[in-house]
Simulated assay, not measured.
Amino acid sequence: MARIHVLTPETATQAQKEIFDATRAKFGKHPLLMSAMTNSTAMMSSYLTLFQNLTEGRFSKQLARKIGLAIGEENGCEYCISLLAAVAKQQKLTDEDIELARHGKSSDAKEQALLDFVLLVVRYKGDLTDAEVDAVKAAGWSDEDIAEVFGHLILNFLTNYFWKVARTDIDFPVLRLFDQSKIVRGSNGKPAPTV
Rank of each mutant, 00 (worst) to 15 (best):
F20M: 03
N39L: 11
L153E: 01
Q62T: 13
G57F: 08
G57L: 02
K110F: 01
E10R: 09
F20S: 03
I71G: 07
R102T: 00
V87D: 03
E96R: 07
L175Y: 04
I71C: 06
Q90C: 09
E74D: 02
A139F: 03
S106Y: 15
I154M: 14
V122I: 14
A22L: 10
G126R: 12
I183V: 05
E148S: 08
E132T: 02
T41I: 12
P31G: 09
I81Y: 12
L119Q: 11
F117N: 02
L175A: 03
P193T: 13
A12D: 07
S106R: 08
L54I: 07
S106K: 10
K26A: 08
V136W: 00
A147N: 02
S106N: 12
A192C: 05
I170G: 02
Q14P: 07
K61L: 10
L33A: 07
D130L: 14
V121E: 06
M37K: 05
A2E: 05
D134G: 05
K125V: 09
K110G: 01
E132R: 02
F51A: 10
L128G: 01
T8D: 08
F51G: 01
T129E: 12
G104L: 04
F150K: 01
I146H: 02
L155F: 04
A42P: 07
S181H: 15
V174L: 07
L83P: 00
E73D: 13
Y124D: 14
L114D: 00
D116C: 00
M34H: 08
H5K: 09
R24L: 07
N39S: 12
